[in-house]
Write a protein that binds this DNA or RNA. Structure first.
Lengths: 239, 239
DNA sequence: AAGCCCTGCGACAAATTGATACAAATTCAT
DNA sequence: ATGAATTTGTATCAATTTGTCGCAGGGCTT
């Protein structure tokens, strides 16, 4: 995994360009911006880009057409920003070749998560991976589908998880057999800092256990390490 | 677990370098220090390093980029130190390939615990394995699963252990036939210092014996060495 | 054998965690 | 946009775990 992924933000609104540039730069990415198709192609020709964040609606040109033109020349992943009112549904964007999309006004943290997720997927794929590699992780009979964000029980029933529960389970599943303290968990799930007497993690742990532990009183999957944090014990395998 | 793991501290602040060096040396590690990337690489070329503790923010160079460059040439584990104020999401570190991270100002005991934890994981792993090998140790008919933190009795019943009891048993099982004094036990289980008249270890020993000794009055597994400490007598075999 | 020191362990207190209830916040649908 | 429903954080209390205290019992020294 590279230290400085190069992200290109394409949006006609300078405020949004600045906002995203500042935020993503602060999170360790190298960020370029472009206010339209011409500027975008200029950047693409000059230097390799790992990921493009593209506004769907820009004066004169559509993010969709830009996306498909990008696809022909670059291996960069694409995340599309859609306005709230836009009736364009996910499928259209994905069929054009976008890797993900997110609605405006966007939660920066969520955007960050998706940026990372797309980078993870697009990276290391030699060829043009139209197939979004379904990342399914299995543990103790359960299946966690990271791309669809679904959890399936050992008896093949889908168990609905809230956003918070899923994020937490994802954090654990991708770091099995390793004690995570509350600070880290909060960091991984919400990018928030932890302060003593914050019991929200304990609470979430409790809720998650109710859903995935056979006997929540004697947890076998997520064990607590008193005075430190929690530990996800099962072995995890890719499916 | 070996006492002479080689740890390399990379930080531009000499105070922190000294502090960590002194502390870790005092706990049985061999410690080198480096104030920047150049010095770090110099050490890495000269001698094998088991673990690197790296400051995230150093003038001129980022701990993140150093981490990924280390990854290419060395098998050393990496723990990243992040400043509290760092706007850079700490999570990035884990995705870059660090094995763990800890916030500054850091609790030395917690750091010690994490150092040991990472060493345990990175050691003996030939290739980069997502799945940590399941370590099951057997003694006197009992089975202690270190990764799932479970104890199974000779008649195949699971015996629940508290965090403290498990940590203590783990310390003994990984150091069989060897007298451990109270200072060492406390250090291994909690990274805490022992002071005379601290009877908490005696107490824990007593509780553990109740659970694993056939006759707690005549302990056969954990024997007392009067005036010194305790001794785990059974032979231990990997399963 | 007496006395001192160390250890075993029961009892209590402190600290940590689990779980429920409720309020705040967010999301969703209308 | 407004209200309902879901989700999430906080408060609270119960349960568990752990450290401290104290005394009894046994070993070692003199």
């Amino acid at each position: 995994m590279t230290e400085t992924a190069h992200v290109l933000v394409v949006d006609d609104d300078p405020d949004i360009r600045d906002e995203l540039q500042e935020y993503l730069t602060g999170h360790g990415f190298r960020v370029s911006t472009a206010e339209g198709g011409a500027a975008m192609h200029a950047v693409l020709e000059k230097e390799p880009v790992d990921l493009i964040i593209m506004d769907l609606k820009m004066p004169g040109e559509s993010g969709l057409s830009l996306t498909s033109s990008v696809r022909k020349t670059s291996k960069a992943g694409v995340i599309i920003l859609t306005g709230t009112g836009d009736d364009v549904d996910r499928v259209v964007g994905l069929e054009i070749g976008a890797d993900d999309y997110i609605a405006k006004p966007c939660n920066l943290r969520e955007l960050l998560a998706r940026v990372r997720s797309v980078l993870r997927r697009t990276r290391g794929e030699g060829g043009a991976g139209l197939e979004v590699e379904a990342e399914c992780l299995q543990f103790a009979g359960w299946t966690l589908d990271l791309s669809e964000r679904r959890l399936t029980s050992p008896d093949s029933a889908e168990v609905p998880l809230t956003t918070g529960e899923f994020n937490m389970l994802e954090a654990f599943v991708t770091r099995p057999k390793r004690v995570l303290n509350r600070d880290q968990i909060l960091d991984l799930t919400q990018g928030r800092d932890w302060s003593p007497y914050d019991r929200s993690i304990d609470n979430l742990i409790s809720r998650l256990r109710q859903k995935i532990e056979a006997d929540p009183k004697n947890p076998q999957i997520i064990k607590t390490v008193r005075g430190v944090g929690y530990l996800f014990t099962p072995a995890v395998s890719k499916k």
